[in-house]
Amino acid sequence: MMNATSTTRQRAAGSDTGMRVLAAATVLTLTIGLFMAFVYAPMDAVQGQAQRIFYVHVPMAWLAYLAFGVIFVGSVGYLWKRDIRWDQLARAGAELGFVFTTLVLITGSLWGRPIWNTFWTWDARLTTTLILWFIYLAYFMIRSYAGDAERGARFAAILGIIGAVDVPIIHLSVQWWRTLHPQPVVLNTSGTQLPNEMLWTLLVCFAGFTLLFIYLLILKCRIESVRDRLADREMEALLATPVAEPRRDLVRAADVSGGSEE
């Protein structure tokens, strides 16, 4: 018993060092990325300062979709192995993915307002991201409406798999739908034409945000694992407590109300 706890502690201490290194790397990369985004990268000739939101917006969009990939991996793993840790991974991915999808939609709208003169346009990428946001919501709902945790994990895993396969198809269908219509706004973000300074800034921001994602994902997995253990302990404690005596006053009150109805 003593041995088990000490090894657990040692392991926790070891991974905490790893987490500290990861946190430091994340902060460093993001700081450099911010500096590059605001100082190093040249101002866009057409869009002016507003274009700088690009360095935050695009990495976040990548994370919004990456997170659904994490859900997919967790979902397949859970249905296959039935190990709760896979579900914890899927839960962690879902929560982060929802946050980043929301942020992508907000930063995109903020960027769109001065440049396109509108908060929203039914472009393929925007539409797919909005639908992705709704799928994340459905994912949370099915988990919370399922009743018990095990069934919630199973149902959510099924939706996770269906959703991950569906998102590329949704993107394809929306793209076809758009190209068959006149396009109101032409997106001008083709990566090949970016000047080198902008490209490097974007790459550093990508790295920084991805590190942040990994850090938060590990942290979130741990929180979910602690939460599960806590729920187990509570259940054990509940089962261990002796069943209380029926309260006489309540029993009598029920008798009286039952009698009066007759």
Binding site: I131, F134, I135, L137, A138, M141, I142, Y145, A146, G147, R151, F155, L159, I162, G163, D166, I169, I170, L172, S173, V174
Partner: peptide
């Protein structure tokens, strides 16, 4: 069918995923 609030859940699941 295995959840609470069935009638609400159904469109929330089906509509976004049936968009194609």
């Amino acid at each position: 069918a295995g959840s609470r609030s069935r009638e609400i859940l159904m469109p929330l699941l089906l509509f976004p995923l049936a968009i194609p």
